[in-house]
Amino acid sequence: MTKQVPIAEGLFTWPAERPALLASRCKNCGIASFPAAQSCMACSGQDVAVEELPGRGTLWTWTIQQFMPKTPYRSNETAETFKPYGVGYLELPGGVRVEGRLTENDPQKLHIGMEMDVVFAPFRTEENGDEVINFFFQPVA
């Protein structure tokens, strides 16, 4: 059976019934940071707690990556199979703006301010068959 593994530990809850991105929030100044960090970039405080970020937000800005990046890019694609992908910052209420890949790559279907959901899906398959799970932002249906 295929094993699903997160692309990095601590980025989001996995496995989970309702996976969510994980941020750290500073107990001193209240600022949230993604990925979760040991200290606060705003006030240098070290008293931070990890919390789940909301699963829906608004698109703050975006672009489309039209050519295949060189390493450290690591997907299963080749120059022939590469498909352009969207990248954007999603503003999550009460949290932070998180940068992530978009499930949509048609510029006509993307606009600043649109609502999007955080979703979790396979990004690549490792040689041992493991599916590597990443987070994506998907337009609200």
Binding site: L11, T63, Q65, P72, Y73, R101, F123, N134
Partner: peptide, 17 residues
């Protein structure tokens, strides 16, 4: 490293966004 693996380690994307 995940940040580069998924294709976001690109200065050009920042300037575009």
């Amino acid at each position: 490293e995940w940040y580069g693996e998924v294709g976001m380690m690109m200065t050009t994307q920042f300037f575009a966004m």
